[in-house]
Computed example of a mutant assay.
Amino acid sequence: MIIIQPSGGLCNRIRVINSAYELAKKRGDKLTVLWLNNAELNCPFESLFAPVTEIKIINIYSNMNFKKILLQLSSQQRFNNTMIENNKKDGVLNEDFFQSLKKRVYISTWEHFYPSSDYRFFKPTRQIQERIDAITSQFGDTCVGVHIRRTDHTWAIESSKTDGFVNAIDKELTQNPKTKFYIATDDINEENYLRDRFPDAIISNQSKTLSRNSIAGMHDALIDLICLSKTNKLFGSYYSSFTDVSADMGQIEKIVIR
């Protein structure tokens, strides 16, 4: 059995679960996911996604959860983020490390360790999908996604400047003045600035909650993620899993603004 406790935000967890599922398939094994509700992502799995049957999801609300501790202690091997990072190359677990895995393995990580573009476990709930459909119905023939990461992401702030996004939007509008842009950002000032600059071209989830430490905030994060994936291409932020996963989900062109 593989027991995985994905950590970090929404997209880190999605990639970790996908990796763990690929590992479980490679081993012909079962997968159990410990979904920790905490300040990084304070929302139960089933409040975001439709029910899944191929993997077992256990919501926990503390690292001292009895089930979690029991699964951890009963595992023959336990690996943390650093161990996973040190035993993979090019996003794949080293073969000798894979061969050394015992029958019951517990992993806690935000690292993805097997590439996968299979997002079968991450279909939004009906209520969230209805909100997504209402937004994407405004996209028209051409809509470009714009993901601007701010707040706590130093590399994105330093590398993906606002002027770079403005220049990319300007260039796109020069080529096709009817283009719409779906804006997903964790900084409302960035969105307001782009609305003022391009008043007829901007679409967004205007009623969203930004806090990840709330169910409403995580619903809105998932809406942004899926809406970005439904655009024709994406202007994204440097070193952002949110940019990477949304582009991968939609199999769309990703242009990182630097």
Rank of each mutant, 00 (worst) to 15 (best):
L34S: 04
V256F: 14
T142L: 15
F66S: 06
V92N: 01
N87W: 03
I84G: 08
N205W: 05
S74N: 05
L173C: 07
L194M: 07
C43W: 09
L228G: 06
L228E: 02
T136Y: 00
D186W: 12
I132W: 13
S74T: 13
Y119R: 03
L225Y: 02
I257H: 09
D133Y: 08
L73W: 14
L93I: 08
R27C: 05
N167A: 12
P124T: 03
R197D: 00
I69H: 07
R120W: 01
H147D: 03
T179L: 03
N59C: 07
Y238E: 12
Q206G: 08
I57V: 08
N192H: 05
M218R: 06
L10K: 09
R120N: 12
E172D: 07
L23V: 09
E190Q: 14
K30T: 09
S229F: 12
T179H: 00
A247F: 12
G145Q: 04
A221F: 07
I3L: 11
F97W: 05
N213G: 03
P124N: 04
E253F: 08
V105W: 03
R120L: 04
E40N: 09
L10M: 15
D200I: 03
I14M: 13
S204K: 10
K171N: 11
C227Q: 05
V16H: 01
I132L: 03
T109W: 03
K89C: 10
D170S: 10
M1V: 15
D141W: 01
S240C: 07
T174K: 09
D200L: 11
N18Q: 15
N167I: 05
W35K: 06
E172R: 09
R104S: 13
E95V: 13
I3D: 06
G145P: 01
V33N: 02
D224P: 01
D118R: 02
E172H: 03
V52N: 12
L23A: 11
F181E: 05
S160G: 11
K88A: 05
R212W: 01
I188Y: 06
K56P: 00
Y193V: 03
A24W: 02
A39G: 01
R27L: 15
R126G: 08
P44Q: 01
A24N: 03
T243M: 01
L173Y: 05
I226K: 01
T179I: 01
T136S: 07
T109K: 02
I135N: 04
G250C: 11
E190F: 13
T53P: 00
D244E: 15
D187I: 02
S75G: 11
N86K: 11
K180Y: 08
Y239D: 15
A20E: 02
D187N: 15
R104W: 04
